[in-house]
């Protein structure tokens, strides 16, 4: 799925060069591609946060002072989604 993303966009752009109607279709295609890209990025960061979150809760259970570092560490993979949002503005 992930590696097909750029191809899908490429295909859409090529199609856009042909005529007016195709251009509309291509627009829809590229929006769909961007949506899939962001969605996958969100899924991936969720997976990454799963392990870190578990470890962070463990650390907080042992020592309350770990609360802030724990939260910071847990949301680090969230950057994946932030980068993925850039894709929306690019297409």
């Amino acid at each position: 799925m992930i590696e097909n993303g750029p191809e899908l966009a490429q295909f859409a752009l090529e199609a856009a060069e042909t005529n007016e109607f195709d251009e509309q279709v291509a627009d829809h295609y590229s929006n769909a591609a961007a949506a899939i890209a962001v969605g996958l990025a969100a899924l991936a960061s969720g997976y990454a946060e799963r392990g870190i979150g578990a470890a962070a809760v463990g650390a907080i259970a042992e020592d309350d002072d770990m609360f802030v570092p724990g939260i910071v560490m847990t949301v680090l993979p969230e950057t994946l989604v932030i980068f993925a949002i850039v894709v929306i503005f690019l297409v």
Binding site: G51, I52, A54, A55, V57, G58, A59, E62, D63
Partner: peptide
């Protein structure tokens, strides 16, 4: 299994 959670607690102890 939850190795991350167990590891964090064990290492702290």
């Amino acid at each position: 299994s939850n190795p991350e959670y167990v590891n964090a607690r064990v290492r702290s102890r």
